[in-house]
Simulated assay, not measured.
Amino acid sequence: MADEDFNNANTTRSGNSAGFRSDAFDPWMQPELFRGVLTRRFFAFLIDLVVLSTPVILGVIFIAVFGVVTLGLGWALFWLVSPASVIWAIVYYGASLGGPHSATVGMRVMDLEMRTWSGEPGYFVLGAMHAVLFWVTLSIFTPLILLTGLFNGRRRLLHDMLLGTVIINNSVLASVAQSYRSY
């Protein structure tokens, strides 16, 4: 009975609505949460690249046609493509990872979800920083930083470790939450 009271106190102390304890997402207790996560993340990234690049490509086409119509004056807008692409990517990741699903479109297709270390869903600033740190660490440390996911139980990449986030299989989340509530 004392262990049950301690677990219930641990659950309520963390303040999360899902009922996860502070030691949520243990790779040894729930390995199904992390099974296939790296492969799914790769394909989710490719889907997100398509989602991110489609409006940028449409914008470039619009500027090119606008430049032809204005006899070359519209091509002066090409300088906006790079900053607009960066802003679009930050807003996309911030809004999607900080939204109700805590996942980008690609992650939702691949049935993944981002959570904090303690099991809380993401929020806008965390989602935006997740994207920024991914691109910064990737550009500084080369793609070899992606290998860090192979050597830890939670399949976390370097930017996940720095931000305290975990990417999990969303399909098995409900059964894990139910097992935590039964304590």
Rank of each mutant, 00 (worst) to 15 (best):
I168Y: 07
I167H: 03
A89T: 00
F151I: 12
L173R: 12
P83Y: 10
F34T: 02
Y92C: 01
T12A: 11
T165V: 07
D48W: 02
L73S: 01
G122Q: 00
D48A: 03
Y93C: 10
F124P: 09
Y92L: 05
Y180T: 04
W135N: 12
T104A: 04
R181F: 08
L138E: 02
Y93W: 10
W88T: 01
M107I: 11
D5Q: 12
I63Q: 10
P121K: 14
S175E: 15
T142G: 07
A44S: 07
I90M: 04
G98M: 05
A95L: 14
V68N: 11
A76W: 10
M29W: 03
G149M: 05
Y92N: 01
R156F: 10
A89P: 02
G149E: 05
F20C: 06
P100F: 09
A18C: 06
L73N: 02
T116A: 09
M29D: 08
E113V: 12
R35H: 14
T165C: 00
L173C: 00
L49C: 12
V176S: 07
G67F: 07
L150I: 12
R40G: 00
A89G: 03
F124Y: 11
N16W: 10
I167C: 06
I145C: 08
Q178H: 11
Q178I: 12
N16V: 05
V60M: 14
S53P: 00
A174W: 00
H130K: 08
A103M: 03
G122C: 03
T11Y: 11
G74L: 01
F151P: 02
R156Q: 15
F45E: 09
L157Q: 05
A89C: 00
L58I: 14
T54E: 01
T70N: 01
W28E: 15
R181D: 08
E113C: 13
V37Y: 09
P31G: 07
Y180W: 15
Y93G: 04
N8S: 13
G164P: 04
S53D: 09
P100K: 15
E32C: 00
M107E: 14
L133S: 04
V51C: 02
L52S: 03
I87C: 08
T137Y: 13
T104P: 06
S175T: 12
L138D: 07
F151D: 10
P55G: 09
V105Y: 08
T12Y: 13
D5C: 08
L77T: 06
P143S: 09
L162V: 15
V172W: 06
S182Y: 09
A84K: 00
G15Q: 05
L49Y: 11
D48P: 03
V81R: 04
L157S: 02
W88C: 01
R21W: 03
S22A: 14
S85W: 11
P143K: 07
G106F: 09
M114C: 09
A95T: 14
M161F: 12
L150R: 08
P83G: 04
L58D: 00
I90T: 00
A89H: 00
L150F: 14
N10Q: 13
G94E: 01
N7Y: 11
F62V: 14
R40N: 06
W75D: 04
D23K: 03
I145Y: 13
F66G: 02
Y92M: 05
L158H: 07
